[in-house]
């Protein structure tokens, strides 16, 4: 090989320059780990939920409007089935047509509400809007973004390449894919952020008859949640309806809660908080979800890349020089 050391270094530098220039610098790349200043979210209280699915219906209705999570050009209302269509949309799980679903877990006879012993409890599944979302961190093109002000994790359709890494990465299995389409998109709850401008908020909270889902600033929701945990079961309490600071209250007896506000710490904290009378593991939450920032796991790897690039180029060049000389010496 007729190549001297200078040539080699020059070529190597030119080739790897692009990679180095990609600026894998922590400052540019680090994910936010603090709750955004104006973070909004939902508090779901499973003990208040009556399973009426009003949230599911109105979620579909209001997200089918332009800007909504289910909006599709040319389709004004995905929740309205065309005349003659051979199905009735009774969503069983989150899907590309359903970004909010009420599920149940029951045991034995299933007679006692909010009990694991011959009882049942409802659970409302939708995006938890992590403070440090794994889906946004793994998206190669930044099609999922966390709004720096209100913290809504939302989707930018025309960036998405459809690799579905977000679905792999989400610890709560939230993002769903339009497999049925040849021009598919990812669908997930976006907290109805398209309705904020008109002074509205998440449809599931607006139409919840009991106040099981309430909308508000995350800090207020956290206060409300911890307040409810201090209440004595059997006492009466004015549960706010629709929003956390609502004037409309629903007075009812307090059920027994599990001493746990889900979403304070899980996966680094979420903007969707949950209260329930049964353990959350029983409600389908993966027990292996740790109180850690998931993007840290991959960042630990990515952060090493610049060092690897520099190290490999240096060590490789040195090795090449040394072994080449030894070979020449042998031949010589």
């Amino acid at each position: 090989m007729g190549m001297n050391r200078r040539d080699f270094l020059r070529t190597a530098a030119a080739g790897s320059g692009a990679l180095l220039a990609s600026g894998v610098s922590p400052a540019f790349a680090s994910m936010p780990k603090e709750l955004p200043t104006g973070a909004v979210g939902i508090l779901y209280d499973a003990t208040l939920c009556i399973g009426c699915k009003s949230c599911m219906v109105n979620c579909k209705k209001y997200n089918s409007e332009p800007g909504g999570a289910l909006y599709l050009q040319g389709r004004t209302a995905s929740y309205e089935v065309k005349p003659g269509a051979p199905f009735w949309d009774s969503a069983e799980d989150l899907s590309s047509r359903t970004v909010n679903v009420i599920k149940v877990n029951k045991s034995g006879t299933g007679l006692n509400k909010d009990s694991t012993d011959n009882g049942f409890s409802f659970i409302k599944q939708h995006c938890l809007h992590c403070i440090t979302p794994a889906c946004a961190s793994v998206c190669p093109v930044g099609a999922l973004k966390k709004n720096p002000v209100n913290g809504v994790v939302h989707y930018i359709e025309n960036r998405c390449i459809g690799c579905r890494y977000c679905m792999m990465a989400c610890p709560f299995n939230i993002p769903k894919y339009e497999y049925e389409s040849a021009t598919p998109q990812v669908r997930k709850c976006q907290l109805c952020y398209h309705r904020y401008d008109e002074g509205k908020y998440s449809a599931c909270c607006e139409f919840c008859p009991t106040g099981a889902s309430i909308f508000g600033k995350v800090l207020d929701l956290r206060k409300e949640a911890s307040r409810r945990l201090t209440l004595k079961p059997g006492d009466e309490y004015d549960f706010p309806v629709q929003t956390v600071d609502s004037k409309q209250k629903s007075r009812r007896k307090v059920s027994k809660y599990i001493e746990h506000v889900y979403g304070l710490k899980e996966a680094g904290g979420t903007q969707y908080l949950l209260l329930a009378g049964v353990p959350f593991e029983w409600l389908g939450f993966n027990r292996n979800i740790k109180d850690q920032f998931l993007p840290d796991l991959t960042w630990a790897y990515i952060a090493k890349i610049p060092a690897v690039i520099a190290g490999v180029i240096l060590a490789g060049t040195a090795t090449w020089a040394v072994t080449r000389k030894r070979n020449k010496d042998k031949e010589g």
Binding site: I50, G51, E92, D93, K103, V104, N105, K106, F120
Partner: peptide, 11 residues
Amino acid sequence: LTPPSLFTEVY
């Protein structure tokens, strides 16, 4: 309420 006739079970 008599679950799960109208609800999906979480598992």
